[in-house]
């Protein structure tokens, strides 16, 4: 195991940021820690790095107990959301810093820095200062700097959080390719579910300081285990129990897993609801259909343009809603 944390708990005043969290990460994986802001995900990352001390629990890095090892000796690479580059140093000096600290011989530093700058595609920028670079370039410098001392694990705290969406997408695809080349065990924190699902091998979903689910992107998307995961990952309709199930149950249905028909389909008696088509929105790959149920609740359905033209749906029409797939949770879960 490259990273293992066991029963980690951390409290800030009255606020329990991390509550008895345990997980393991295998060598060479790229793992996302996904959660809303304030869920404790960054704190977990900082505890692994040694930037924060847990109140209880253990941290293992490459099989060795690291809980009491100071940051300086943990040999982790850390990338900060706001780059944290040394402003008064050139790009070259920034990347060389970790090597100089470790007293690597000069010639070796030279070749390693050149190699890394090439890797992050900034070879021509070695003499620039951070203030002369764009956000995306700065974050690539930060990445090169973190990788330079060949860390055991790479930790990234919302690495694309400060970038605009286009650069963000480019950079995350690039990070995936880089990871496939380098195979450094990497753990990155994000609040963006799309980012987590697209880039990672494994997703750790955190909410209110606790782990909700761990699994591959496909697993957590297809088989969410908790109401939180269901509603956090991908769009979902939350339907109160009395419509599809019993009173203490809530049903979660993804908009694209609902079909609409004009008649009650055979053999589907209890799982069908009448609804009124309120609005059709044709923007995007699918058509978004807003429906109003008999009790006033609303429901969104995503239909392919083909299905829509089959139905020749018009706003104001009466249809029947039949979910193809849904998740039912009992109500004692709170979201």
């Amino acid at each position: 195991m490259a990273i293992k944390i066991q029963n980690i708990t951390k409290q800030f005043g009255d606020f329990r940021a991390v509550d008895d969290v345990s997980f393991e990460i295998e060598h060479g994986q790229l793992v996302a820690v996904l959660g809303p802001s304030g869920s404790g995900k960054s704190t977990i990352l900082r505890i692994i790095a040694g930037l924060e001390t847990p109140d209880s629990g253990e941290v293992f890095l490459t099989g060795e107990e690291a809980t009491d090892i100071p940051i300086q000796e943990r040999n982790v690479g850390f990338v900060f959301q706001h780059y944290a580059l040394f402003k008064h140093m050139t790009v070259w000096d920034n990347v060389a810093f970790g090597l100089e600290v470790r007293k690597v011989p000069k010639e070796k530093i030279q070749s390693r820095v050149d190699e890394l700058l090439k890797l992050v595609q900034l070879s021509g920028y070695s003499r620039r200062y951070p203030s002369q670079l764009s956000g995306g370039q700065r974050q690539r410098v930060a990445l090169a700097r973190a990788l330079a001392p060949e860390p055991k694990v790479l930790l990234l705290d919302e690495p694309f959080g400060a970038l605009d969406s286009k650069v963000r997408e480019e950079l995350r695809e690039w990070l995936r390719r880089l990871h496939d080349e380098m195979h450094v065990t990497s753990l990155f924190v994000t609040h963006d579910q799309e980012e987590a699902l697209e880039v990672s091998d494994k997703v750790v979903i955190v909410n209110k300081g606790k782990i909700e689910q761990i699994g591959s992107p496909q697993e957590v998307y297809k088989h969410p285990k908790t109401p939180f995961v269901t509603s956090f990952i991908g769009p979902v309709n939350v339907v109160p129990g009395r419509l599809f199930g019993s009173h203490d149950e809530t049903t979660y249905v993804r908009p694209h897993e609902i079909d609409l028909t004009y008649d009650v389909p055979e053999g589907k008696g209890g799982k069908v609801l009448p609804a009124l088509v309120r609005r059709l929105n044709h923007v995007g790959a699918n058509v978004k259909v807003d429906l109003e149920l008999a009790d006033g609740n609303t429901l969104q359905v995503h239909l392919t343009p083909e299905r829509l033209s089959e139905l020749s749906l018009v706003e104001g029409e009466q249809v029947f809603v039949s979910p193809k797939e849904m998740k039912v949770f009992t109500e004692d879960y709170t979201i």
Binding site: A49, G50, L51, I71, Q72, E73, R74, N75, V76, G77, F78, F80, H82, Y83, A84, L85, F86, K87, F97, G98, V101, R102, A142, R145, A146, A148, P149
Partner: peptide, 14 residues
């Protein structure tokens, strides 16, 4: 000067 810069230096062994 962000605390980040100091933290970054410490993760690199400084």
């Amino acid at each position: 000067v962000d605390v980040d810069q100091e933290e970054a230096a410490s993760t690199m062994g400084a």
